[in-house]
Design a protein around this nucleic acid. Structure first.
Lengths: 136, 136
DNA sequence: ATGTATGCAAAACATTTGCACCTGG
DNA sequence: CCAGGTGCAAATGTTTTGCATACAT
């Protein structure tokens, strides 16, 4: 249940937060921009400002409820954190996003950080390509 | 010689382009923002607008002369393309950037793209961590 | 000469913030 | 009740664009 998730993060259970969480959960596309979410709220006739969407998403990010990605092209995309870490394959033609997990790459990244004396915080791997549907 | 590089890209050899190329080559920091370059030009008392810096960098990117990176935090960083592909390790404390090459990771990325039927275009791997100097 | 480039100012975006009002616990 | 949350509008930071002028070939 969503409300517990919010409380655990020390956030009051407010209508905007619940609505936004619902949209993230219900969307068939896992990666949404703040604008996408805002439009979605408008469609549902919700009276929520874009600024609030950004504020809520930023708080959700800090609470580990969502992850923020900066793929090529201006805006950030937000994805519900469903637990398992994964990286992304993005189609440069149609924008489709495919998630993948590659244990070997994860391992090697840890080694690289270690070799350079870095304490690993997080990482971002995005492969850009042309998906099967956009192939000539 | 720089001029040949510009001509080869179909770009006229103009003063702003040469100056910007010089700054990229001369800087001891390989990764500069448009603003960094602009400030650098001002220090050298060059009369070049920020808009021109952006236009030139965008053209350089299209010509393969520089690479553009979107690390965490607003602006883009530009790096002279010296040939060898590499990925980046970024310190979240001080912003230091270390380049690295990891053949195994490169290989696995190709496999991942292939397995999903994607034609690989390019990729971006950034590891964020805390560098030795910023370690507590 | 002539098509490109440039400078400047203004526009366009994505995101953040100030502030008065509202609301959840 | 009251700290925290929200809406709106205005501010911000970065990058792009329109347009008249200047320059490379």
């Amino acid at each position: 249940m969503d409300k517990a998730q919010l409380k655990k993060a020390g956030l009051k259970v407010t209508l905007p937060r619940i609505k936004i969480l619902n949209i993230l959960e219900a969307s068939d596309e896992n990666h949404l921009s703040a604008e996408d979410i805002y439009k979605s709220l408008l469609l549902n006739s919700e009276q929520i400002g874009l600024a609030t969407v950004y504020r809520v998403l930023t708080q959700f990010e800090a609470a580990g409820i969502v992850n923020r990605h900066h793929f090529d092209g201006g805006q950030s995309l937000f994805e519900l954190n469903r637990g398992g870490h994964h990286d992304h394959l993005v189609c440069v033609e149609c924008g489709k996003i495919v998630e993948f997990v590659e244990e070997i790459i994860e391992e090697r990244q840890k080694s690289v950080a270690l070799e350079h004396g870095f304490t690993l915080v997080h990482h971002s791997l995005t492969i850009y390509g042309i998906c099967p549907d956009c192939q000539p």
